[in-house]
Design a protein around this nucleic acid. Structure first.
Ligand SMILES: [Zn+2]
Ligand SMILES: [Zn+2]
Ligand SMILES: [Zn+2]
Ligand SMILES: [Zn+2]
Lengths: 141, 141
DNA sequence: CTTACAAGCTACAGTCGGTAGAGGTTCAAG
DNA sequence: CTTGAACCTCTACCGACTGTAGCTTGTAAG
């Protein structure tokens, strides 16, 4: 039986985060000592390691919830699993595309700035006027 | 004099967002009609357009606040401006690097999956065991 | 057996950058 | 004068945690 601190350390998680995952239903409510402290077993360790690894790969908690549900049915086709992973891949690719456009614009405006006064700063000029940009940069950060 | 709705429309912003920017001190408190409605001038239009464009390029509101402050001193050197933009560029590059590693792992695990049962799904196998990965993928999403 | 203290507990606030809704008021056109 | 879109304030919510305050529990040494 593991304490929450040991479980957290073994999976590279913060203690509060473990409690948070329990709160949102990703981890089951564990056994408690008489005094009310949580005690975990190996299945909790595996489950939490899975969650953390999926998070590192960018899956949302909602997607992870689905993946965990699916992995409880070993005989089913894995097409839903692969669909979720494929969706995640697409999201990553969209973000890369956007960020590469941003990199280009930022590199360009910095390269064009003479480093003189604020009044002449090319960076500020571009920020004031999107017409000075080469790309659209649609929504959000 | 512009209403908040017109100002929002001209800058591609939501009305609530304009009020939010005022609340966090990025936009000055505008004049009001007798009835208490906000009325904006052209300087507000310029300032909001600047904010929105900088957001599209991924700058944080905190960075934008600094940029706006700096642009009020036209005679100063623009080195602080360029430093902020350079920092933003670095951040974008870090994110791209991380996302490219994720893309690689996701592509690989999807490519290795035979699409058979959940019990054999390569995607789930990899998620269960980071040792099956080629890269580290450090922190967070 | 007592004491000390690390580690646990709950509950709540804050992060970032907005977004949505409730419930009420004002403006401008007809 | 009436209508109704647009405005107002206030509050709560999103994701995925993180941090703090103020207690309580578990454990090991003396
Ligand atoms: Zn410059
Ligand atoms: Zn632009
Ligand atoms: Zn599969
Ligand atoms: Zn991995």
């Amino acid at each position: 039986m593991l304490t929450i601190g040991t479980l957290a350390k073994r999976t590279g998680t913060k203690v509060q985060t473990v409690r948070y995952y329990e709160q949102v239903g990703l981890l089951p409510e564990p056994d408690r000592t008489e005094g009310g402290q949580r005690r975990y077993g190996d299945s909790d360790l595996d489950r939490l390691a899975f969650i953390r690894h999926a998070r590192q790969l960018g899956f949302t908690l909602e997607a992870i919830r689905e993946l965990l549900d699916l992995s409880d049915n070993p005989n089913r086709s894995c097409e839903d699993v692969d669909r979720i992973a494929h969706h995640q891949l697409k999201e990553v690719e969209v973000r890369i595309t956007r960020l590469e456009a941003l990199r280009k614009e930022l590199t360009r405006m910095l390269g064009e700035c003479s480093g003189d006064t604020v009044a002449d700063c090319r960076v500020l000029e571009v920020l004031r006027d999107h017409a000075a940009c080469l790309t659209d940069h649609g929504q959000g950060a």
